[in-house]
Design a protein around this nucleic acid. Structure first.
Lengths: 129, 129
DNA sequence: TCCTTCCTACGAAACAATTCGTAGATCAGA
DNA sequence: TCTGATCTACGAATTGTTTCGTAGGAAGGA
């Protein structure tokens, strides 16, 4: 799997990517500390996962220090878009509307969020004319 | 795993559920025929998957005939909502807005769909006041 | 009745994802 | 220098998912 043909990250991989996006760059220990705060997990588990993610091209790393420094290769938004597209295809028959409806039903957005969505809607409908 | 504690269906399971939702009830052969039209797959693979899904409580079955008749236990919308909720949590930090934005960016909805979303938005904002 | 076809059940292989133990290198402080 | 802490690498166990081969039973037609 090359960098340009990255597939859906697994659950554990996504958890790690979230930490990397949040902090920019991380050592294994940095990531481990965040993960282990949320749930029981072992240091070498995190290490192994980052090594695998490196092989897959999901992350890059700087090996110039003793503690390697990892970085997500894809932007958060790009990965989010990939995941939404995947779900759209697998579960919603490609219907963006059905997905959006279920998303809004699943967890009600705040007033501000709804306004933001409305703004986007205006833009999109503007394009269409 | 009981019927009330069903977890995210796997990719293969979701494919089968889609067929069941579409047709209501199906024999293994019915499902197999639909799946094999889309891609190479074996009859006993479909059979085994349906047996596993039955054990997991994802489907029910009528064994009164020689060919068992399967039926999805959860409604399509309920499963869709579960999957969206799952993605919302795993990839979007619970932000419905971010998910909706990415969904609309991923695949542009038609004019009619956008209007439908706008209608829903009006409803939601109405509630809020 | 015998043969073919279709069905279920089931074990197991193949593969992927996750976890962890252990080994060896490096480095800092006593 | 010795000791302990920390790092990477890596093999392997474990668990979950998907695929498929084979066996045995039931049904229908020649």
């Amino acid at each position: 799997m090359t960098a340009n043909d990255v597939s859906r990250p697994t659950d554990a991989e996504l958890e790690i990517l979230k930490v990397l996006w949040e902090r920019g760059t991380c050592t294994v220990r940095d990531v481990f500390e965040v993960l282990s705060a949320a749930r029981e997990t072992g240091y070498t588990t995190t290490l192994k996962l980052l090594q695998i993610m490196f092989e897959k091209g999901l992350v890059s790393r700087d090996e110039s220090q003793k503690s390697h420094v990892y970085k997500a290769r894809a932007k958060q938004q790009a990965t989010q878009r990939m995941l939404v597209t995947d779900l759209l295809t697998r579960a919603f028959g490609g219907s963006t509307e059905k997905l959006v409806v279920q998303a809004l039903a699943a967890k009600k957005a705040s007033k501000e969020e709804l306004a933001e969505i409305r703004r986007l809607l205006n833009e999109l409908e503007g394009d269409e004319q």
